[in-house]
Design a binder for these strands. Structure first.
Lengths: 353, 353
DNA sequence: ATACTTTTCGTTAACGTACACGGAACGCAA
DNA sequence: TTGCGTTCCGTGTACGTTAACGAAAAGTAT
């Protein structure tokens, strides 16, 4: 096993001091072109890679991260999941000279998003994790980041060609395709399917529309589809709309393209509805409960904790100069969760805690 | 954001030098009882945790790891997967003062396992990753590790109360349960199921038996089960046995409790067999091909690369003294893979490469 | 030639930890 | 008193890197 080459090795071979090697490694100038070339050649020959531990240890300034994601103000427990991953990253990076600021907004209020973005002093950060729920509102902030050369990553929602160094999320359309496939396996005789979109003020992200599109695209013509939009900010909902829809006809398949499957399951179990194939998203406790009780058939999971964890780590590695500049788009696995395997997908399981 | 407390902070507060603090941290003695207590109290109050980067940087001796796992000598491509994870771990730990020795054996030959174990100079290693395919043969080696106080972890196969600091694998029985559930969804009319066990010399690990047990336990009495044992070391196989079995009766469900689903799929596609629900294990290329072509319906995945990666990292963290001594048993998720989500489960996806 | 600037490079003190070494203070025996 | 052995603790160097500082050499202007 070879010993790693260090800056000192290079310096010795080039007949210069470590200071000079450091200057060429960081392009800090003040080096003769000839010396520069000689050193670069040696570096390439030996395949030098910096020791990140030492680098982190000696870094003078600390790395400051801004994390801008929704919280559960709108009663959507999903957003705790990304926070779990971020907290794990914070814990792991506490050995390094790092610094985190968390900014929360209400995912069901564009104004809240705008206000929070306005309150973030971008220039005070070295890296930003952003969940750009509202595209238009995000663009201006993103421009600020780009002009200030601050690297940033997206989670959950993506914006193409925005200059972000990475994206961690799920292929929403494809997850809808998978939901359709699963439903086809469960429904054979009567093929009456209801799609239930629920949110506060009927704000449905592009993600949700993509899921529905994927579902509709793959479910096939021999299925009758009904689509329902429900405003959860009305306290009567979703029960009012669901009651009305189910009075008119009988459904044996329900697709809920966001976290709110448990709201339907609450309703269905209260009404004593049985033998319905219910497919929803995300492993929040409420959904897991209903999955285990049989009120939900499938949950699709996108490992939000892993996404945010990886996003932070990408930023960190980028700032340490390890990773190249090429953009990383990481589509999370679309986990198919049923009653029998749900217990193996907890955050605790993932983190070994 | 608070700055982390360092040894120096503690030394200053206790009015001693860092050398003394270091002595109490490592229980190296030569410290007055009174001073010892004073320092310990401060350490606990401030919640000091060592900086692992600095620790790794200053470590004199390098950490030596032995990795003892099967390779693909018996033509089982599965074993490349754990190696992927190990290679990733090696790459990540190359910044630290670490050293890896890989020992391979033939998973279908107990004698090969015994020979390899005999050739491993256990006392030369600080940590061992072992895949104890053959329990009896492993026990003696494990005893050596225990008496020499060398920490070790298992992957894939577990042995209870062996003294290992961790296990990373899958709940084999439960994966069989899930296979049964999936098959129930696909098969409705005729319920004729074939279980195909294949290996060289008919060596079927406890894992395989557990998978079959879980499957049988959950498939239900209204299914007719036939079980086949095939010795792949016979070049005529598996085609000979499969041909005979399928001549006698028609099956519409096939359960293959190990990596060899592609061997059946090869046969089935050559014979033009259609409309069979085939369930197998592991995302090796051959299986993925057949999954995409429709010759395999489901694959169950256990993320073998993640398992071995985590195993090495556990050993490393243990040796650095970060993790407590309590044993970690980590059951991998039982991923349900279909044609539509398989592309999101590659090693490349997992590692961001 | 003198003074002053620029280019180019070496030196050095950190970062937090491990560990060898040496030295002060004390006890005890001669 | 001297000599010697413990006990207890501080100092110093190292790990690989960063980055400030300063200094030598070379160039430029007067």
């Amino acid at each position: 096993m070879k010993k790693r080459v260090s800056i000192k090795d290079i310096a010795t071979l080039a007949g210069v001091s470590i200071g000079t090697v450091d200057r060429v490694l960081h392009n800090r100038g003040e080096v003769n072109a000839e010396t520069h070339n000689r050193i670069m050649q040696i570096i390439n020959e030996l395949g030098y890679t910096p020791n990140l531990q030492a680098k982190a240890l000696s870094m003078k300034k600390s790395l400051r991260f801004a994390v801008i994601i929704p919280d559960s103000q709108d009663n959507n427990p999903y957003w705790q999941k990304p926070m779990d991953g971020i907290n794990l990253a914070i814990a792991e990076l506490s050995n390094y000279n790092t610094n985190f600021n968390i900014f929360h907004f209400d995912a069901s209020s564009e104004q809240s998003f705008i206000n929070v973005l306005a309150s973030v002093p971008a220039n005070e950060f070295d890296g930003v994790l952003l969940c750009p729920v509202f595209k238009q509102a995000a663009l201006q902030f993103i421009q600020t980041l780009n002009t200030q050369q601050i690297p940033f990553v997206f989670i959950d929602v993506n914006i193409n060609n925005a200059g972000n160094i990475g994206y961690f999320g799920q292929d929403a359309f494809q997850s809808g395709v998978i939901a359709a496939r699963l439903m086809q396996k469960d429904i054979h005789t009567s093929r009456n399917v209801l799609i239930v979109k629920q949110s506060n003020h009927k704000i449905f992200s592009n993600h949700i529309e993509q899921r529905v599109a994927g579902f509709r695209n793959s479910i096939g013509n021999d299925y009758r589809i009904t689509e329902l939009e429900i405003d959860l900010s009305d306290p009567q909902e979703p029960n009012a709309s669901l009651g009305q829809a189910l009075k008119q006809q009988q459904f044996n398949g329900i697709f809920i393209p966001n976290t709110r499957a448990f709201r339907f399951a609450d309703f269905a179990s209260a009404q004593g509805l049985k033998n319905i194939c219910v497919i929803g998203y995300d492993l929040i406790d409420e959904n897991i409960d209903h999955l285990k009780k049989g009120n939900i058939s499938y949950l699709l999971n996108q490992r939000p904790d892993e996404q945010s964890y990886k996003a932070i780590m990408l930023l960190f590695n980028y700032l340490l100069g390890q990773k190249e500049i090429k953009q990383i788009d990481n589509y999370s696995p679309i986990d198919i969760i049923i009653k029998e395997n749900v217990d193996y997908y907890s955050h605790a399981n993932w983190t070994n805690k």
